[in-house]
């Protein structure tokens, strides 16, 4: 690598501050972080989200709900997407408002004409 490129690379690394550190090997021996305890009184609830059919439950697919909120169909109302251990993505369309969401029966997000799916096992 010529001198100018190398100097430029070094300058770039310095500028970025090295606050993530490049290392090929996984730092396996890292001890877990110790958390400060949760404060009481920050949240209401918690309550389980419901859809048309009742409490949302990914149990039949071995659970491991992975929720995300996004306006999927672009109608201005934020919908709910829930992944689970099947690798599918269940879309709960918001039939209410952004202040008071009301979720319809789930349909599977489609990708390329089939259910969108990520490999699980």
């Amino acid at each position: 690598m010529n001198r100018i490129k190398r100097a430029g690379l070094a300058a770039a690394v310095l500028a970025l501050g090295g606050l993530a550190w490049a290392q090929e090997k996984v730092p396996y021996d890292t001890p877990p972080d110790e958390p400060q305890a949760a404060k009481a009184g920050v949240f209401h609830g918690p309550v389980r989200l419901k859809a048309v059919g009742g409490v949302i439950d990914t149990g039949p697919a071995w659970g491991h709900s992975g929720p995300w909120v996004e306006d999927v169909d672009g109608d201005g109302k934020r919908d709910l997407v829930v992944g689970d251990f099947s690798g599918l993505f269940h879309l709960y369309h918001n039939e209410g408002t952004n202040q008071a969401p009301r979720y319809a029966k789930a349909v599977n997000l489609q990708a390329g004409g089939v259910d969108a799916k990520v490999p699980i096992y």
Binding site: F43, H44, G45, R48, I56
Partner: peptide, 13 residues
């Protein structure tokens, strides 16, 4: 035992 996976809402006060 039967598996469940819920979505819990923690609404900020």
């Amino acid at each position: 035992a039967v598996a469940h996976g819920y979505v819990w809402l923690f609404r900020r006060k």
